[in-house]
Amino acid sequence: MPIGKDEILRIANLARLFVSEEEIGPLQRHLNGILEHFERLKELDLEGIDPFAFECDTAGSSRQDAVSVWPGREDVLAQAPNREGDFFRVPRILDESDEVHLDECR
């Protein structure tokens, strides 16, 4: 089923991406184009393939539990779009309960 306008808007919202009225049409056509191409994959025989079976010779790589202090902190805060003292500042958070999960479970 081709992707409709409200589907585009649903995804755009999920991606936190403002799209203008003019952008919607082209985006719709593009996405449907991609998915049309994708239909070819459906003809492939992919039976019994473990999608994550790619060999990986770095499996299990890890680091020691050692602390080091990073000196660049001020360079970051100095470039913060909206710095307030030692903090990054963000505008009013309206009800976004679908997003507060991590914040709330503390």
């Binding site: 790589s61 890890s62 020691q64 539990d65 902190r73 970051v76 003292g85 903090f87 990054f88």
Partner: peptide, 21 residues
């Protein structure tokens, strides 16, 4: 605030995670 930070835990472009054993 924001003293125990680095490119990785600030999510700076290009930074990559390596897991703590």
């Amino acid at each position: 605030p924001n003293t125990n930070v680095c490119p990785v835990c600030l999510g700076l472009p290009g930074a990559l995670p390596v897991v703590n054993r």
